[in-house]
């Protein structure tokens, strides 16, 4: 069952994240005349030829596939803007640049479906790819610093897909460290047989009383802006 998420790892599969991203609004230029569409999530339209309007991404893709509209690429998907972001990403090794929460998915859907609507499409595609690589590398360097004293990880501005890739590993790693660093495991031994780095400078450890809570906390911080990933633990 490849399309479904694994309940063990508390994560979404990539298509599921894409599905969530399809609710984001994008601008389209329709070439048909149509009344407003009244849907549960809101009213969209009415549509007039050559007059830009905002619709959810799924609707935009559906209209595009029928040849009823063209995309107007979002402002952040221009070559200049992406070059700036890439520069800034490379310059600040500890911070992530603000990009739309679903930038990976939105850009993929727009690029896949609207070849002719996006100027410099190859450049845009490779820039986004580079940005994602740089950011992911940063996440990995951050993960190297996890130790037993890490109780939560805050990753500001990380996007949905990036969080989703790293979540299974990060949750497990934090769990393992938490377990091995619990106070009942680490007692001061009388005769130290192995060198233990950093054992003297261990600060006062604030133990989290309820264990499941610490996990909630982790997944909460991991998601920063997103509000959808509390399934169950």
């Amino acid at each position: 069952m490849a399309g479904q998420s694994d309940s063990h790892l508390l994560s979404f599969s990539a298509p599921e994240v894409e599905f969530l991203a399809e609710d984001e609004l994008v601008e389209i230029i329709p070439n048909l005349r149509m009344d407003a569409l009244n849907m549960i999530c809101g009213d969209f339209g009415p549509f007039f030829p050559q007059i830009a309007t905002k619709v959810p991404l799924w609707l935009a893709v559906a209209l595009k596939k029928r040849g009823k509209c063209s995309f107007r690429p979002p402002e952040w998907m221009s070559v200049e803007r992406l070059t700036q972001v890439l520069e800034a990403e490379r310059e600040s090794p500890r911070e992530f640049q603000p990009l739309p929460f679903h930038y990976v998915e939105i850009s993929k859907l727009l690029i896949d479906n609207g070849h002719e609507d996006i100027p410099d499409i190859y450049m845009v595609r490779s820039l986004i790819e580079d940005i994602r690589d740089v950011r992911f590398h940063k996440v990995e360097t951050g993960l190297e610093t996890i130790s037993g004293r890490t109780h939560a990880v805050k990753l500001k501005n990380l996007s949905a897909m990036e969080v989703n890739i790293v979540r299974p590993f990060m949750v497990r790693a934090l769990q393992a460290f938490y377990k091995l660093d619990s106070p009942e495991m680490i007692q001061q031994p009388e005769a130290t047989v192995n060198r233990r780095p950093r054992v003297i400078d261990r600060g006062p450890r604030v133990s989290l009383q309820i264990r499941p809570f610490s996990l909630y906390y982790v997944s909460m911080l991991l998601s920063d802006y997103c509000h959808f990933n509390f399934i169950s633990i």
């Binding site: 037993g148 393992a176 460290f177 091995l180 660093d181 009942e184 495991m185 680490i186 007692q187 001061q188 031994p189 009388e190 005769a191 130290t192 047989v193 192995n194 060198r195 233990r196 780095p197 054992v199």
Partner: peptide, 11 residues
């Protein structure tokens, strides 16, 4: 008592 610290070091 040193097993705990050893495990943590190994991991």
């Amino acid at each position: 008592k040193s097993i705990g610290a050893f495990l943590r070091y190994a991991f």
